[in-house]
């Protein structure tokens, strides 16, 4: 009996892995295509797209595309700009949006429902539709810096960061998650005389691991893939992000090999970020179990 059930268990395990792996194949192939193509000369790359050779490191393999990509465009600069803008925005966004969501979820105050309604309505506004009004706005906004008061935010990092910190989706994400937290905890803390800041800092945020990770990933993706906005507010190469940099490779005679190399390079930070987040994500699971 015992051996049979062990076999059965083993078989089921195999089936599970086979299913997981088959699904994995469906999801991984474009990345495989991208990475493999980055190693091939353009003409071979294009010929290989017709067959499974596209996913194999065959033929004339080398790193020439990478060298060419670096000489065509300041790749490191673009990656730096994107990582900087994305990193700062994600951090500020997590803080300010969770703070607002905390207030929307746990506090009662006049005007709360109206403001929350407005925030949720902004979910519906696609960025493309407000880009031009926003451009006109930021081109006139004041800023106090080392040189005193100035007007106009064009050609800066801040113009790529500040308008993107708060958005309806991130706030909404936190609100939906906070709703699942037990209110008794908060009320008990209030009874004991904790300030709202202490409750936010010591009770709610430590429980917010999964939603922080989700919101961070979402924001990271949005920011890292910015294209239209930096295109219209940044004219100096020194502030350009990666997706605008991608356009450097679309010449009349498009260098597909270099494009694939560039794409591979710019995908690395996102993948790394996800893997770090995933770890944070898993470790936070143990601490939850708050709901019940």
């Amino acid at each position: 009996m015992a051996t049979i059930s062990a076999d059965n268990h083993g078989l089921r395990l195999v089936v599970r892995y086979v299913v997981l792996t088959l699904i994995a194949v469906i999801f991984i192939f474009p990345l495989l295509f991208m990475v493999m193509s980055s190693l091939k000369p353009s003409d071979q790359l294009l010929r290989d797209t017709a067959s499974l050779r596209a996913f194999l490191p065959v033929g004339d393999i080398g790193f020439a595309n990478y060298a060419d990509a670096f000489s065509r465009a300041p790749v490191a600069l673009f990656v730096f700009n994107s990582v900087l803008v994305t990193g700062v925005t994600v951090l500020l966004s997590l803080f300010l949006c969770s703070l607002a969501a905390f207030s929307f979820t746990f506090l009662n105050w006049k005007g709360r429902d109206l403001l929350l309604g407005i925030v949720i309505a902004t979910l519906i506004v696609p960025f493309e539709t407000i880009a031009i009004p926003l451009l006109l706005l930021v081109s006139k906004l004041p800023w106090i810096g080392l040189d005193g008061l100035q007007f106009g935010w064009l050609n800066t990092y801040r113009v790529q960061i500040i308008p993107w910190i708060a958005d309806g989706l991130t706030v909404f994400l936190f609100v939906q998650y906070f709703k699942d937290l037990p209110r008794e905890l908060i009320e008990a803390a209030r009874v004991e005389g904790a300030s709202w800041w202490q409750i936010y800092r010591r009770i709610v945020m430590p429980l917010a691991g999964p939603v922080l990770a989700t919101a961070a990933i979402l924001k990271f993706l949005v920011m890292y893939n910015q294209y239209l906005w930096p295109l219209i507010v940044v004219q100096q190469e020194s502030y350009r992000p990666v997706m605008v940099g991608l356009q450097y490779f679309f010449q009349l005679d498009t260098a597909w090999g270099e494009i694939m190399a560039y794409l591979t390079i710019i995908t690395v930070p996102v993948l790394a970020f996800y893997l770090i987040m995933q770890r944070a994500f898993i470790s936070s699971i143990a601490s939850t179990g708050v709901k019940g």
């Binding site: 300010l96 703070l99 905390f102 207030s103 506090l107 006049k110 308008p163 708060a166 309806g168």
Partner: peptide, 12 residues
């Protein structure tokens, strides 16, 4: 309530 919500809401 307002103090916590305002920075995020103001930006939006």
């Amino acid at each position: 309530g307002w103090a916590f919500a305002l920075p995020g809401f103001g930006l939006i």
